[in-house]
Design a protein around this nucleic acid. Structure first.
Lengths: 217, 217, 217, 217
DNA sequence: CATGAATGAGACTTCATTCAT
DNA sequence: CATGAATGAAGTCTCATTCAT
């Protein structure tokens, strides 16, 4: 739901718009929104700075559109997961997996969200960021609480601490993730889930007792 | 610290300097470095923008000093830990604990580091950020590898993924941590370590009906 | 910048031209020439900004054509009046009446002229505005002077002040006049003339002993 | 005037502001608000464009301050006149005189007001222009109506037409008035009032019929 | 030490204008 | 004839920085 103010030229060409937004997102993610000049985006897109304004109202509206596009898609998927009626553990697994998929698809948008959402949320225009964050907390924290009640998640931990731990752990990944890397989003999700759920320490399983048949050279 | 040849006119009282840096750090952390105007810092400090230049060469040098102060202290502590010759698990525990203590002491600086280090590292002046990151990786990744070799950390995980998981897990906390909150840094460290090492899932009932006969005690 | 050596493609239908000019004039009058964007005119005309350039060389040439069209017509009528050899009072009456008729026909153009002519006159392209103003002054001031000489206009007033008074009195009306209002141009002219010639004050009781002898015819 | 070296121009804030506003007003009046660049104002003031922003928020706020300063003063004087309880004719005389004095004092502001107020009034920030215009109409139209009722002003004229006639007649003078000219504001007011009240035509003095007997002495 | 005023570079944005389709 | 997209110049404004007082 971007701007709906004055200009009758709302959607000149969806494709070009999309390309330009992708370019902008990439630069915003790499340099930070404030540090990114509109000229830099234009250079990257092979046009002059002023030309961007044929497609967008302002630098801010580009940011806006990048974020809303991402959040809309994220919530479509999250909502589907939450509506599926899975048990807490499977819900967490699904949410984490969808999150990594979203990072895969909208890496730049996620990185921007991570870096900028806190101070953007103060502006009325970006109020939806706060809304989204609240919904986000409801979904994750609620699921964790159900899990604790169902005795599948530990009860001896501060639940909010756990929430932040899981949440951040997943989303910071956007800062280093590169599509087409060694692991697929699903594989990363699997390993993250394994760490988050079971820890990185070796289970009591006697590190010595039973000597596993090692690989014969 | 490469450049130190500029102004020999550097005789302001160290206390005032410290106060001003703390103020600046707070604003940088809250709004982002680029989005912060020198005037805003001056306002917060009760003076005019121009007056800050009696104390500092530039806005950038404030940022520089904030980051180096933080990193210098961090490394003093990390080096002490690493020099102590602890086993991998205790080393990780100590590093995590020191990290949370550092977040407690330099919350603003840590938050700035998180948000800005990536694009700052490109500038020569901030080359030390890259150095620090490399040392950081050596320390943590090395410890994890030793732990895997010693079979105290799981071997079935991608080690770099594990590294990023542990690293991020700890440092993102700076984005929400507020000194004087419900938990002390040490308590947060304890819980985080517990999650990271053992996971958030409840262990399956140890004495399961069937197969697993191996656990000795 | 009179660039007119490139496009021989000037074969638009005169009607469309006229419509577009009327639209442009309306917008120029409402918002001011400088504050009016070519896009606004195009919007109002139901086309895109670029499309206007099929019909006109430039925004300035639209303004030019609007003003010359108006002035040409005005001078045709003024010249007819001046050529009629009326006495000073009847000449003034005729000029005023024609002026209001012109305001009725070219309200927008007159309003533009009022607002913009002063600074436009500085540009060579609009030199004709200065010429017109000089002719205008000759016509009006000359008539007034003849009237003073003939003792039909007061001699105790600064003649230039009188000239400006009469001139402004008539033309500012363009700022509020709307065609199709309560009064016809002729009626407005009649009342204005009555005010200008005889004042708005009630005449002191029969200024002379003798009661007014009735009209002869 | 480029800045000469040794100018001991110690200009305290309010005075400098005032000077700059006067400069701006002059340029706005000469070229029109929209056609005036901030750089032009700065040039005229002997500084760089950006430097103006140390004193003012924006170009618009300069305009705002110019207009409010003028209107505040105008209304102080108008209100004094209206509160004096004069009869309709003397009230009109006083209002006209004060108006010409105001034109003398704030010529530029008045000229700006004339040219720009109509489209500025649409913006919320300049809503006070509409308010002022309404008060203005109340004052003048009301006085004229009282005068008609008291039979000192003609009843055979459309009163709103009369109002506009008197109002415009006075205020357009700002477009040609130059302080220090041949006539003082009071003298101009006297002549204008004479024209408005009694007309420019020679009184009853029969242009031909009967030779005026009275003014022989 | 601090202020007040200014500089200068560069940012975002607007807009008249062009041109291939 | 009109559109869609772009250009390029110019305009308003911001801000780190300087410097005389």
């Amino acid at each position: 739901m971007p701007n709906s103010k004055k200009k009758p030229t709302m959607t000149p060409s969806p494709e070009r718009r999309g390309e330009l937004l992708a370019t902008a997102a990439e630069v915003f993610a790499a340099q930070g929104y404030n540090a990114t000049t509109v000229r830099r985006i234009a250079d990257e897109a092979g046009m002059l700075a002023g030309s961007l304004y044929y497609h967008f109202d302002s630098k801010e509206s580009m940011l806006d559109e990048i974020l809303t596009t991402f959040l809309d898609e994220l919530w479509a998927r999250y909502d589907a997961v939450l509506a599926a009626g899975l048990d807490p553990r499977r819900t967490i697994e699904a949410l984490v997996t969808e999150s990594f998929r979203e990072i895969d698809r909208h890496r730049a948008a996620v990185a921007i969200y991570q870096k900028e959402s806190r101070h953007l949320a103060a502006q009325p225009r970006f109020g939806y960021l706060t809304d989204s964050q609240r919904k986000f907390e409801e979904a994750w924290l609620g699921t964790l609480e159900r899990g604790v009640a169902a005795k599948v998640f530990r009860a001896d931990l501060d639940i909010r601490l756990t929430y932040r731990f899981v949440r951040d752990t997943v989303w910071v990944a956007a800062s280093w993730y590169r599509p087409g890397g060694a692991h697929s989003p699903e594989e990363i999700a699997r390993q993250y889930l394994s760490m988050v759920l079971d820890g990185i320490a070796v289970r009591e399983a006697p590190p010595t007792p039973a000597p596993p048949p090692e690989h014969s050279p």
